[in-house]
Design a binder for these strands. Structure first.
Lengths: 339, 339
DNA sequence: TTGTACGCGTTATCAA
DNA sequence: TTGATAACGCGTACAA
């Protein structure tokens, strides 16, 4: 109703009988202000309802207190948990999250432009795919970037990753120990860097155990794509006894499809493994054997590294790699004798 | 590496041989600029890599192009889908999402203070709980607010809601039609406004059908809380034949617990209903009968209303109510004869 | 410790 | 249509 103008530091200064800069100094850490005037300023500020204007501050300090987080729907990556944890860590460091979604934009250039105009202090990138050129762009603009679960070779962007190779090798070895010979690798969408990496790790791990030319199918990380691609594989003339899925959600789709439409028991008739460690993995109906990403540590590291880069941009980029935790579920067992 | 200074409109003006204000006009819709100078400015801007500084613009226009979205972990509400859709809608309207999490902050006052200093254009509130006083605070600051699935009586904050009462009545009536007499209501956490409202709707709907003094248990919207509270109920001397859950995730927990630890078949031995329409509802293992919130419509409405309020703050607050879609699953059936 | 004066990079106003 | 000039609300040298 009353469109009263916003209270500024000038208003407070006048009311408190001091200069505007005195007011300013009260709100900046480590500036010299006498106890007396500080108390005086804070009192009248409270009375008038004064709060410093972050926008004006940004303009002069060139720090926005905002970090851009770039997502894309295809990123898999347990989106809500990761985002929520990142937000928590950042708010502890007095940074806010400004959200960008690659799907909604005209493209990465569009997002980059916005990020640039908003003067964010840094970027955490979770999106499905970045090419080297895009990352180079951030460097040109002098914006620190931390990649989450994405490694870019030969570039100076820092990244925080789960060790996919180690985890997947662990899963593959178990399946091999159980005598499995007919595998199906269910990969994620080819546009996704994570999907691509996990696929390569699976192929490599299988190859190390002497399993070559393993059939591959591509899904899109969704439950339905897990179901459908598994059904396709079952109708081929190379029926698998073990399915290696690039994420948990597809693995759950495989399990449901195998049980319902093919009457298979898990793990007696079919072994299934996933990756990520989402909540549903622990549900009684599934109890999926998988690798859980250490989200707490990874998000903390991502934020710590980013802030380090913001404070000291000359610091070299770093890669931090985390081992996933093996989750022993109930979806892996010995291969049945051929009938 | 070269920490070259940021290119400003002055740099472009000088290089293009025009005034700084001419440059500015090129980037503002509807300002009068001749074709010729516009082309000239855009060309040199591109050459120099000039992008307008959004911060400086905010300071003078008093529009930040940012909308605060307030979440809290207890909000249930299909967090990722809603947030992703809101982000999409807002980016279409050229607004960015600035994220706030009530859990991480010292409290709502803290968040309100930050929102205020950041000069956001508006607020969309998804958090678990708001008291009237907090909402009044937004009004004092003249910040438009849209509440998502939260109605606040007698206040001028707009809200976009799913019609819980209608949906829950529908579910209750079906259970009643099937002859159920021994119910269990599994409510969400008492701090959550949504949980509270759904609980009241359930009690009311049951009462309308002559079922009074129905036992109530409180969970926290999680799978495990669904399992555990159901197990408790089974160990009481009032074993239910139908469970009405305040959200889908708890309902799934109930189903798993009933099957695994009590050997019950769904729906032959036990009927279960949920609310929300999350993805897992459609999984083969569950096929939960539930009410699906029309997220697409609701998020679109939330954004439309917010932008309307931003453009015309004097407009009255409005409430938009959406019917949920009944999802006919396979978790509801006739009550068994008492043995 | 305090106040004065200036600058951050833009949009808005007004006269030309 | 254009250019000079004044805000916007703050931080920060510099002098007192």
């Amino acid at each position: 109703m009353n469109s009263k103008k916003r209270v500024t530091s000038y208003d407070v200064a006048k009311a408190a009988g001091v200069s505007q800069s005195a007011v300013s100094r009260v709100y900046v850490e480590g500036r010299s202000v006498s106890k007396k005037t500080k108390a005086m300023v804070l009192a009248t500020a409270k009375e008038l309802g004064y709060k410093p204007n972050a926008i004006a501050r940004m303009l002069i300090t060139k720090r926005s207190g905002m970090v851009a987080v770039i997502l894309s729907s295809r990123a898999n990556l347990i989106y809500p948990e990761v985002l929520s944890l990142l937000n928590k860590r950042l708010s502890e460091k007095n940074e806010r999250v400004l959200l960008f979604n690659l799907d909604d934009a005209a493209g990465l250039d569009d997002i980059l432009e916005q990020i640039w105009t908003f003067q964010v202090d840094g970027v955490i990138a979770l999106a499905a795919h970045f090419d080297n050129e895009s990352i180079e762009n951030f460097k040109v603009h002098n914006i620190p970037v931390v990649l989450y679960n994405r490694r870019v070779s030969g570039h100076s962007a820092s990244s925080v990753c789960c060790n996919h190779e180690q985890g997947i090798r662990q899963l593959v070895n178990i399946l091999d120990d159980f005598g499995h010979k007919r595998f199906l690798v269910l990969a994620g969408p080819s546009e996704s860097d994570v999907a691509q990496e996990r696929l390569e790790c699976a192929i490599k791990s299988l190859s190390l155990k002497g399993h070559n030319d393993v059939p591959i199918k591509y899904g899109d990380f969704s439950y339905d794509s897990g179901r459908l691609t598994f059904a396709e594989a079952m109708h081929s003339n190379n029926v698998p006894t073990a399915v290696i899925c690039s994420n948990d959600t597809m693995a759950i789709g495989v399990i449901d499809e195998a049980r319902k439409n093919f009457g298979l028991r898990i793990p007696e008739d079919l072994s299934v493994v996933g990756f990520d460690g989402v909540n549903a993995v622990f549900w009684h109906s599934y109890q999926l054997t998988t690798i859980k990403q250490p989200l707490e540590q990874m998000t903390k590291a991502a934020v710590d590294i980013l802030l380090e880069q913001i404070e000291s941009p000359e610091n070299p980029a770093q890669l931090r790699l985390w081992s996933g935790a093996f989750i022993e579920g109930n979806t892996v067992g010995p291969v049945r004798n051929e009938q």
